[in-house]
Design a protein around this nucleic acid. Sequence first.
DNA 1: ACCTGAACACCGTTCAAGT
DNA 2: ACCTGAACACCGTTCAAGT
Lengths: 204, 204
Amino acid sequence: MRNSLADVVAAGLRVLDAQGLENCSMRRVAAELGVQPSALYHHVPDKQTLLALMADEIVGPVALGGGAAQGAEGAAGAQAAGPAADPRAFCMALREAMLAVRDGADVVATAAAFRLGASDVERWLTALVGPDGARTLLLYTFGHAQSTQTHRQAAALGALIDPAALPRRDAAAVADPERDLDASFERGLAIILRGLDASATSGR
Amino acid sequence: MRNSLADVVAAGLRVLDAQGLENCSMRRVAAELGVQPSALYHHVPDKQTLLALMADEIVGPVALGGGAAQGAEGAAGAQAAGPAADPRAFCMALREAMLAVRDGADVVATAAAFRLGASDVERWLTALVGPDGARTLLLYTFGHAQSTQTHRQAAALGALIDPAALPRRDAAAVADPERDLDASFERGLAIILRGLDASATSGR
DNA sequence: ACCTGAACACCGTTCAAGT
DNA sequence: ACCTGAACACCGTTCAAGT
């Protein structure tokens, strides 16, 4: 039989991961399903809506399945419990989920901005650290993940840049940008959490 | 006589501010200059480069002209001094500059990610608060500004959403989202700066 | 309910050629 | 140096029509 909405979203994620957001066109998603472009509009009103559904799929495991990342596909052995109880683990899991699919951070961040204050992840974080802490952590996490993925993409294209032409201080980061960015994320997270602690123990 | 690179960048900014990033095509920029699309490729190798130059123009006043925003165009009465000496003022000025042009945050954040660790703004902030603090503040500022502008755009299109259908807790934010987002940005900034202070006074 | 086929109004980029 | 004209391989979306 024919395709369901879930099939369309899954095909979208496959194209996104394989080709990147730039090349994730309605026409390519349709081709992935072996169907005419116009057929997609039976399942989804426009591209933006499809991307929002894809974002939900990317983030789903984090909001529902606990701190450990589970792959965007099946989520076979899901813990029935809620998300991680600790904001650090939550943000790291969120980051991992976004980084697991190509340009995932862009897709998730854009969708989240459309529902500012009303997303599941923001609600969960608000329960853990209050509304200001939640938004700060979330936007930092999005910003860092987007930056990481854009930088990855730039590095993938421009293996062209000659490391010898760079200032000495950037040498380590150029040598292993992936490890550097992971560590940089965790240090920033620590700074924000320290700020939240200080706010809690002082007069607010 | 004919157009210069500066003319192309200026035309790009005019189209961006008037039509948004989505509609800021090479063909429209060319039309703004009264020229064929192919003529742009004499000044610029591709669209990405043009957007990066536009990003520099948007952020320029902040990196060079002090804390006060000055409009992306002329910057007639520039203070000769460096940027704001205080990280709070610097981030607020950066945010203001990005918000001053439609989709400015998207354009600046993308360009910044391509030069991660090598942008002028990151260098300046690093001098004020060290590399971890700089990246944290920067990515938070980008994330919040992007979120603000995306949310604006959504609100502009969907005056459709019925406020009565929303949970009560969001009522104030819906009533005046602009003021709410400004205040939210400053509270998040305070949290991060408090975290940096705590790191400095404690053992690091 | 789900899809095809054809169309409309667009894209970024290249390239030979003009002045 | 700066631009035109024409072309290539694409876009998102709509709409009548099929099954």
